[in-house]
Deep mutational scan, measured.
Amino acid sequence: EVTIKANLIFANGSTQTAEFKGTFEKATSEAYAYADTLKKDNGEYTVDVADKGYTLNAKFAG
């Protein structure tokens, strides 16, 4: 089991951190699915991958 950390950075400057656990593939998929649920209210996002894929920095356009 691994933990994927998602740093969510919103256009207004606020941030949120979420963690997803499971296999690498499952946890990564859940992190992206969570970011997708936030698109409606926060706009499209881009992701910078860090820490060999164990940290995802998602920046929302607003």
Rank of each mutant, 00 (worst) to 15 (best):
E1C: 15
E1F: 13
E1V: 13
E1H: 12
E1D: 11
E1Q: 13
E1A: 10
E1S: 11
E1P: 10
E1T: 12
E1G: 08
V2G: 03
V2P: 03
V2Y: 05
V2M: 06
V2E: 06
V2F: 05
V2D: 03
V2H: 06
V2Q: 05
V2A: 06
T3M: 07
T3F: 06
T3W: 06
T3E: 05
I4W: 00
I4C: 04
I4E: 00
I4L: 05
I4M: 02
I4F: 01
I4P: 00
K5D: 03
K5S: 07
K5P: 01
K5V: 14
K5L: 12
A6S: 05
A6Q: 05
A6T: 10
A6W: 07
N7D: 02
N7F: 13
N7W: 08
N7A: 05
N7V: 14
N7P: 01
N7H: 12
N7L: 10
N7Q: 07
L8A: 06
L8T: 02
L8I: 13
L8P: 01
L8N: 00
I9H: 11
I9Q: 08
I9D: 03
F10S: 03
F10T: 03
F10V: 01
F10D: 01
F10C: 06
F10Y: 06
F10L: 10
F10E: 00
A11S: 10
A11Q: 09
A11R: 07
A11E: 08
A11N: 08
A11V: 09
A11I: 09
N12Y: 05
N12A: 05
G13F: 04
G13I: 02
G13T: 04
G13K: 06
G13R: 02
S14D: 13
S14A: 12
S14W: 12
S14H: 13
S14M: 13
T15Q: 12
T15K: 11
T15F: 12
T15D: 04
T15E: 07
T15V: 14
T15W: 11
T15A: 09
Q16C: 15
Q16R: 11
Q16D: 08
Q16T: 12
Q16A: 12
Q16W: 13
Q16H: 13
Q16E: 13
T17E: 09
T17Y: 13
T17N: 07
T17H: 11
T17S: 11
A18Q: 12
A18P: 01
A18Y: 14
A18E: 09
A18I: 15
A18V: 15
A18T: 10
E19H: 12
E19Q: 10
E19W: 15
E19R: 07
E19C: 15
F20E: 02
F20L: 00
F20M: 01
F20Y: 06
F20P: 00
F20I: 01
F20K: 00
F20R: 00
K21E: 06
K21F: 13
K21C: 11
K21G: 05
K21Q: 10
K21T: 13
K21N: 08
K21D: 04
K21M: 10
G22H: 00
G22C: 06
G22S: 04
G22M: 01
G22T: 00
G22A: 04
G22R: 00
G22V: 04
G22L: 02
G22Y: 04
T23V: 08
T23Q: 07
T23N: 08
T23F: 07
F24C: 08
F24G: 02
F24R: 06
F24Y: 10
F24P: 05
F24M: 10
F24V: 06
E25W: 09
E25F: 09
E25R: 07
E25V: 09
E25D: 11
E25P: 06
K26R: 12
K26D: 12
K26L: 11
K26Q: 14
K26C: 12
K26Y: 10
K26W: 11
K26S: 13
K26P: 01
K26H: 12
K26I: 11
A27Y: 01
A27I: 03
A27V: 03
A27F: 03
A27H: 02
T28L: 14
T28A: 05
T28R: 08
T28V: 12
T28I: 12
T28W: 15
S29D: 10
S29T: 10
S29F: 13
S29I: 13
E30W: 07
A31D: 02
A31W: 06
A31G: 02
A31Y: 04
A31E: 02
A31S: 04
A31N: 00
A31T: 01
Y32V: 06
Y32T: 04
Y32W: 08
Y32L: 14
Y32M: 10
Y32E: 03
Y32P: 01
Y32N: 02
A33Y: 07
A33W: 08
A33K: 12
A33D: 08
A33I: 08
Y34L: 08
Y34V: 02
Y34H: 06
Y34W: 15
Y34I: 02
Y34D: 00
A35G: 01
A35E: 01
A35R: 00
A35D: 02
A35S: 04
A35N: 03
A35I: 15
D36I: 04
D36H: 11
D36M: 05
D36P: 00
D36E: 12
D36F: 02
D36R: 00
D36G: 04
D36L: 05
T37Q: 12
T37K: 13
T37P: 00
T37V: 09
T37C: 14
T37L: 13
T37I: 10
L38I: 05
L38C: 09
L38E: 04
L38Q: 07
L38W: 13
K39T: 11
K39M: 11
K39H: 04
K39I: 13
K39V: 15
K39P: 03
K40Y: 10
K40R: 12
D41Q: 11
D41V: 12
D41G: 09
D41S: 11
N42E: 11
N42W: 15
N42H: 15
N42T: 01
N42F: 15
G43Y: 02
G43Q: 03
G43K: 01
G43H: 02
G43V: 04
G43D: 02
E44N: 11
E44S: 11
E44D: 13
E44F: 10
E44M: 10
E44L: 10
E44P: 14
E44C: 13
Y45V: 05
Y45D: 02
Y45R: 02
Y45G: 02
Y45S: 01
T46S: 10
T46L: 09
T46F: 09
T46C: 13
T46P: 02
T46V: 11
T46H: 10
V47G: 02
V47T: 06
V47M: 15
D48F: 13
D48P: 00
D48G: 08
D48R: 08
D48A: 11
V49F: 12
V49K: 08
V49Q: 06
V49N: 05
A50Y: 10
A50N: 08
A50T: 14
A50R: 12
A50P: 03
D51T: 02
D51I: 01
D51Q: 05
D51K: 01
D51W: 01
D51P: 00
K52N: 15
K52C: 15
K52T: 08
K52Q: 14
K52E: 15
K52L: 13
K52G: 15
K52M: 14
G53V: 02
G53H: 01
G53T: 01
G53R: 00
G53I: 01
G53L: 00
Y54R: 06
Y54N: 06
Y54K: 07
Y54M: 11
Y54V: 05
Y54L: 14
Y54E: 06
Y54G: 05
Y54C: 11
Y54H: 11
T55R: 03
T55A: 04
T55S: 06
T55Q: 07
T55P: 01
T55I: 08
L56V: 08
L56I: 15
L56N: 03
L56K: 02
L56F: 10
L56A: 03
L56C: 06
L56Q: 03
L56H: 04
N57W: 10
N57K: 04
N57F: 11
N57H: 09
N57Y: 12
N57D: 06
N57T: 14
N57V: 12
N57C: 08
A58G: 04
A58Q: 05
A58D: 05
A58L: 15
A58I: 15
A58S: 04
A58E: 05
A58W: 15
K59L: 14
K59M: 13
K59E: 09
K59C: 13
K59Y: 15
K59T: 15
F60V: 02
F60S: 00
F60I: 01
F60D: 03
A61V: 13
A61H: 14
A61Y: 13
G62P: 07
G62M: 07
G62K: 06
G62F: 07
G62H: 07
G62Y: 07
G62Q: 08
G62T: 07
G62V: 07
G62N: 08
G62L: 07
G62S: 08
